[in-house]
Design a protein around this nucleic acid. Structure first.
Lengths: 209, 209
DNA sequence: CAAATTTTTGACCGGTTGGACAAACGTTAG
DNA sequence: CTAACGTTTGTCCAACCGGTCAAAAATTTG
């Protein structure tokens, strides 16, 4: 672990941000191995050796990107509040995740790419940080079930299904657009999805009666 | 279009199958650009030039693989029968899709990889064959809704959500295992998922009353 | 068997890629 | 101004990769 943050000049901070932004664009579209340093450098408006002055290896860029990603990616789940109203909390969570798929599709695809390849670079984080968080929230949901606030079911698979359905609109965007066609595949598709998912999940989770 | 199937010797048939099997393994794990002909050749137990004797280009292997894949991949949806009982039909469809995720995870990942990269090689098929099929089945589902057999909702997004939730167990397998842990992440996870998804979808789709 | 055909392989090639390096250029502080 | 430091670039390299080719080996056919 590097104890203190490495001191960086103003230019270094700016250029690193520029590179990370460009790398997100390129990596999310072509995957890690499918992307070249040249592509990223060009997208960032600089030469390859110049880029390599800021990040010594291609992997360093990817690693930095993944570290930042995971924090923001799990933020919605962290916000799930055990003191709030269960149905409202879950509905909010679904909405927030869907908004992330809409507003940050590149981040979603970058993440999907990494998992698809077997998560070689972030498996420890999945088994550690992520598992801890999900277990914690699953316990919260279980509490809601015991209290009769929502139907009894498996909290872990419930979380998986929320991830799957929302991220689908970012990761499989091309397919969604192709199937919906030019008219229905426009900007309104996320509102349609939001309405559908709310109905699917809430009606399925309502306590009997 | 090649009118007649190209005549192939016994060896050609066998070796081509061997290569396709090896390529499925390699492509689904590393993506198209992330895979090398050498890797596929080694997995198939032959030299690179020998492999290139059966498939002239790397893309040819991928293309053949994708063509075969799509047929079997859409089979479950094709089986959705408008004369059957709506809830039973949907439940069967979900179960079949989940079984495919369990039994053919490599095919699922190969497909996911292609879509993630923007479906460069199969976009026409998505906008044509796939869209036609989905529209047709969406109409069937709409009919069931009009008849009051299932709750009114968006049939297209319903299909998307079934795809998303079931394929998630193949495409994001590493994550699912990491989160569930060694004990719950074992063989039983698909049965847990099946139970959960059945409850989620059916309770959410039941007509009021 | 022998000729024809199919299959397999080693050697090779041109292009690409990740990365090194030193020299040039720019900036800033004394 | 100038020395020190930070930034940028052109050039280069070794490894890798997709694909070719001719010749050897194996198989099929007559």
């Amino acid at each position: 672990m590097e104890g203190s943050a490495p001191r960086r000049t103003r230019i270094q901070q700016e250029k690193r941000e520029l590179i990370l932004e460009a790398a997100l664009e390129v990596f999310s579209a072509n995957g890690f191995r499918g992307s070249t340093i040249d592509q990223i450098a060009e997208a960032a408006g600089m030469s390859k050796p110049n880029l390599l002055y800021y990040f010594r290896r291609k992997e360093d860029i990817h690693e930095t990107l993944m570290q930042r990603l995971l924090d923001t990616w799990l933020a919605p789940l962290r916000e799930l509040d055990d003191t709030g109203d269960p149905l409202t909390e879950l509905r909010s969570y679904i909405r927030r995740k869907l908004e992330m798929a809409r507003d940050f599709p590149r981040e979603s695809r970058l993440f999907a790419n990494e998992i698809l390849q077997g998560a070689p670079r972030i498996k420890p984080m999945l088994e550690g940080e992520l598992k801890t968080l999900v277990d914690e929230k699953a316990a919260v949901i279980k509490g809601w079930m015991r209290a009769g606030k929502i139907a009894r079911t498996d909290p872990w698979h419930l979380i998986f299904s929320i991830w799957a359905t929302t991220q689908h609109y970012a990761d499989f965007d091309v397919q969604v657009r192709a199937v919906l066609g030019a008219d229905r595949g426009g900007d309104g598709r996320f509102e349609d999805a939001a309405r559908f998912l709310e109905q699917l999940f809430l009606d399925g989770l309502k306590p009997k009666g």
